[in-house]
Design a protein around this nucleic acid. Sequence first.
DNA 1: ATAACCATTTTTGCATTCAAATTGGATCTT
DNA 2: AAGATCCAATTTGAATGCAAAAATGGTTAT
Lengths: 220, 220
Amino acid sequence: MLHEEVVGRVRAMLLDGEIPPGARIPERDLCEKLQISRTPLREALKVLAAEGLVQLLPNRGSRAARLTDKDMRDLFEVCQGLEALAGELACERITDAEVAEVAAVHAAMVRHYGDRDLLQYYRCNRTIHEAIIAAAGNPVLSGLYESVTARIRRARYVTPMTPRRWALAVQEHEAILNALQRRDGVGLSHILRAHLRHKREEVLQAGFAETEPQNEARAS
Amino acid sequence: MLHEEVVGRVRAMLLDGEIPPGARIPERDLCEKLQISRTPLREALKVLAAEGLVQLLPNRGSRAARLTDKDMRDLFEVCQGLEALAGELACERITDAEVAEVAAVHAAMVRHYGDRDLLQYYRCNRTIHEAIIAAAGNPVLSGLYESVTARIRRARYVTPMTPRRWALAVQEHEAILNALQRRDGVGLSHILRAHLRHKREEVLQAGFAETEPQNEARAS
DNA sequence: ATAACCATTTTTGCATTCAAATTGGATCTT
DNA sequence: AAGATCCAATTTGAATGCAAAAATGGTTAT
């Protein structure tokens, strides 16, 4: 198993909640589960700690990082900034074919909204946001976005929406597509910022923070 | 020596050019120089690879990453986005005392401009930009900014400026301070974006990219 | 009964060791 | 003599072993 694969596997376990926030990570157990020795696992844990997914306690091992409300707010703020930047850049660089692709996904998303199929709706939603990032053509941006959004993904794409809020989100997405079609970078960045700000308020209101000092759950 | 210290030391060697871009990094040599064994060094190298400072070649060791023109452009673009975001947030959160501090550094910077002391000018310049980031009060943002700017720092703060360009930069900084004092977040973010865009053009024109496949320099 | 202390056990951090892959050079072939 | 091939030496990647630190449990004293 390659180094990047180990990192990926453990990262997935953290993001999926298979290792719950705040849980201690006993090296021996994880080694056994992944069928590797401690050396490559420890390398992966250090990388994940640098990403903010793992918290290292000197001489006391590592735990899955826990997101506070403040962390969530900070991550959403940065995400806003990155999406706004991506929106501007995307309008300069996106091709007609790519816009058409986004339009198609958008149409599908609207249909799922009509069916009130939240799961499919979120799937299209995420595809659209990622397409805008990709269209910016900036791998540094893509990398940071991936790392930031991964940490808030569950909150972002699981939080249920009120009918009122959902309708507004769809409306905002209409504006997003429109700005993209008109290649209105400034407009798009404003809409994206507002869109994310609303999402953040929603998530924070739902109380998605991961701050329960109890629940000393171990990684099964 | 603590893990973070090893990472920091090697990172500094890479950023200072003590290990030049593109140079192979023989583990044994570096271990000897740092007086540690290969295990902790390799952990640090993986972390630095995740940061983009080191390039890992499977079974063929690691080299100091080399920045292409495209990389430089991408990093500057992201830096623009982050500073713009920081500017907006800073205007919401900065205290009068912090603004006064920025004003003082700005005044010192203008004096250094009068003396044509580029080194001191750049030092103040950097302090101001970092103060704006700090005033945003967002550790996630600060962390990403630090990691992005570290990689373009030499280009950003070493490139000589034409008298014409330098005067414009000072003018832009006047506007930055002004917007900060008026807590004009939108205005500040626009100025910062333009400021960074100018800087980027300057740097790219100076041809600061690190793309010379020859020069197989080893880390002394 | 509670709290404090000490021995035991577990876990971490790092050095060392071992196997696999790569590199460079010498030899052989054409 | 040029090129390909094979072998030794180096270097990487991962497992193991060992010392130090922390957690655990039980005992004793208050």
